[in-house]
Amino acid sequence: MNWREVAVTVSSEGEEAVADLFYQIGCPGVSVEDPELLRNYIESGIWDYHSFGEVDLTGTSIIKGYLCEDDYLSRRMTQLDESLRELVKQFPEWVIQVKGITVKEEDWATAWKAYFKPTRVGNHFLIKPTWEDVNPRSEDVILELDPGMAFGTGTHATTVLCLEELEEIVKPGMRVFDLGTGSGILAIAAAKLGAEVEAVDLDPVAIRVTQENIDLNHVSARISAKLGDLGSVLQGQADLVVANIIADVILMLLPDLKRILKANGEFLASGIIENRAEDVEIGMREAGLEVIEKKENSGWVLLRARWK
């Protein structure tokens, strides 16, 4: 199968807005090449295993999305084009340039690996690509990962927010549901903290990759990976439900949350772009939840909620 790689170069201020446009047309994930963020990572020591040389600050970022070349491609490209034109009207000072190429599935599955490096998150998590070597500390909780073609390397701000919260919330013996598991990184992290986890995704590729990563991390006794509609394939209730998806899908999940979340349970919702956070908060209140914590990272928001 062939895929269309669509790369949008945009002024750094428009990074989140363009990323959100890709999600709106059904793109399961995006990559962001942000020179300023890369330099910040290097200077902070987050990527302390590699030398990237001098990083030039261009004032722009490159947002890449991958769309299947199927019967829906033309409609999605038209929708993206119209949305980008609207951005140009609203922000005429922004640079917005678009180009697209066709890539084979096997090329897409491996090309991004040059940018995925060992990364520390929170106090103890060390995300380790399978092809990289690290010297872990004694207290490190290593998350061995090969995302393949599934969304989620763990370095995106939305996933970082979730990992930091899991480190604080999860206790041994808890039951956790991970909705839209992607590469399985959050499910694996919860399992390594002692939880019993059920990971769900609509995408069979994601479930296959999740199972491979479960095996890599030797946590198969603690995690079951299930293919199906988010929430509908789960039985019983969890102490914690995690959904690192997008705002619209989170809003769709809320009516079903009563069935799968315990009365004293908690809900972690991430993947919410900053300008949609208020919509999700309103939806949560209408569903009977109260937001007890709100965190932001690089224009993305995580909401932690409980039943009122």
Rank of each mutant, 00 (worst) to 15 (best):
176 V>W: 09
206 A>L: 12
169 I>G: 03
163 L>H: 05
188 I>D: 00
193 L>H: 00
161 L>R: 02
176 V>R: 12
179 L>A: 05
183 S>A: 10
178 D>P: 11
177 F>L: 13
204 P>T: 10
175 R>E: 11
177 F>H: 08
205 V>K: 08
207 I>V: 15
176 V>M: 08
200 V>W: 10
162 C>F: 07
173 G>Y: 11
185 I>F: 02
162 C>L: 03
172 P>E: 09
197 V>Q: 14
207 I>Y: 02
201 D>C: 07
162 C>G: 04
181 T>C: 14
205 V>C: 11
163 L>T: 04
205 V>D: 12
196 E>M: 14
187 A>D: 03
161 L>V: 02
200 V>D: 13
167 E>H: 01
168 E>G: 04
164 E>F: 00
168 E>C: 01
163 L>V: 01
162 C>Q: 08
159 T>I: 03
197 V>P: 12
207 I>P: 15
163 L>A: 02
157 A>V: 11
173 G>V: 14
159 T>K: 05
205 V>H: 06
158 T>K: 06
189 A>Y: 07
192 K>L: 09
184 G>K: 02
185 I>E: 04
208 R>H: 14
164 E>N: 11
160 V>Q: 06
174 M>W: 03
209 V>D: 01
186 L>S: 01
160 V>K: 04
184 G>Y: 06
194 G>L: 12
183 S>Q: 11
160 V>C: 01
207 I>T: 10
182 G>F: 03
197 V>D: 11
185 I>Q: 01
161 L>P: 04
162 C>I: 00
167 E>V: 04
177 F>N: 06
191 A>K: 10
188 I>L: 09
191 A>G: 03
203 D>Y: 10
193 L>W: 02
174 M>H: 05
157 A>K: 15
171 K>C: 11
209 V>W: 06
178 D>M: 04
203 D>S: 13
